[in-house]
């Protein structure tokens, strides 16, 4: 079973993403939730999700650090990471790239774009 992990400290955004990704949940894809980077790393170790939505601005450990940790972790499966940030600054894009993120989406995002992207990555046809 494929898994998607949502990492965000904001419960509303977590909720939103969960609802957006509902069509995938209906297709037997597990949606996992983590409210911070440390929890996320534990979940990743345990569940090894295929796709991770990673917020940048988080307390304790920011998205870049989490991303770096994931990418440097020699687990057998390396997940696809989509960074989510409110900041549209060039430096953030560069940082995201440098920390190993595969994709970078600025809030607020377009739901259809997001859904298309996910189905492309997970090879799941929603229609």
């Amino acid at each position: 079973m494929k898994k998607i992990l949502i990492v965000d400290d904001d419960p509303i955004i977590r909720n939103l993403l969960e609802q957006i990704l509902e069509p995938f949940a209906e297709k037997d894809i597990e949606i996992l939730i983590a409210e911070n980077g440390l929890v996320a790393l534990d979940i990743i170790k345990e569940k090894q999700p295929e796709l991770i939505f990673l917020d940048v601005m988080m307390p304790k450990m920011n998205g870049f650090e989490v991303c770096q940790k994931i990418k440097n972790n020699p687990t057998d499966k390396i997940p696809y990471i989509i960074m989510l940030t409110a900041k549209g600054q060039e430096t953030d894009k560069e940082k995201a790239k440098a920390s190993g993120a595969d994709c970078y989406i600025t809030k607020p995002f377009n739901i259809n774009d997001l859904l298309n992207k996910v189905s492309e990555i997970l090879q799941v046809n929603l229609n």
């Binding site: 509303i12 955004i13 957006i20 409110a86 600025t106 809030k107 607020p108 995002f109 739901i111």
Partner: peptide, 9 residues
């Protein structure tokens, strides 16, 4: 942006 994301989403 964060609330706007929620509103829009």
């Amino acid at each position: 942006r964060t609330p706007l994301t929620a509103v829009k989403g």
